[in-house]
């Protein structure tokens, strides 16, 4: 079982080696950088940078992240259900359909609540 994952490790090491290797080669062979004050400033299309480098951003992004975690967990719950759906349908009848139907029904209440709260309203 665990042996099946050995190629994943090999692939990860090769990918890491490639990433680090190319960066090292670029440092060694690339033209050495000449610095000046303008080059060291943040890039804002050639203008002198204005304001903070890390501006405040809409709290909506946090809401999206939180919703994602909630609903992604729900999606993960559905995976084992989906994989066993056919077998269970054959052996135990349509009960498996209604169980997931009720679960999604409850989740949908939360989803509708989030929508009504205006999580996806980006105008204001």
């Amino acid at each position: 079982m665990l042996k099946d994952y050995l190629p994943v490790l090999i692939q990860a090491l090769v990918a890491l080696g490639f990433a680090v290797g190319t960066l090292v080669v670029s440092v060694l062979l690339g033209r050495s950088a000449r610095r000046n004050a303008m080059k060291d400033s943040a890039y804002e299309c050639g203008m002198i940078p204005q304001g903070e480098a890390q501006p405040r951003f809409s709290v909506k992004f946090y809401l999206v992240a939180m919703l994602f975690i909630l609903f992604d967990v729900e999606v993960v719950f559905m995976y084992p259900w989906a994989l066993n759906y056919r077998d269970s349908l054959r052996e135990h009848g349509p009960m498996i359909f209604w169980s997931m139907f009720s679960f999604i029904g409850i989740v949908t209440v939360g989803y509708v609540y989030a929508l009504k709260k205006g999580v996806l309203e980006w105008k204001n």
């Binding site: 190319t22 960066l23 080669v25 670029s26 440092v27 062979l29 690339g30 033209r31 050495s32 950088a33 000449r34 610095r35 080059k39 060291d40 400033s41 943040a42 890039y43 480098a53």
Partner: peptide
């Protein structure tokens, strides 16, 4: 890509930038 100037601006957080 390999031969161009490899520039790390002064204002960045170097470790995470790399």
């Amino acid at each position: 890509f390999i031969l161009k100037e490899d520039f790390t601006p002064a204002h960045v957080n170097k470790f995470y930038f790399w």
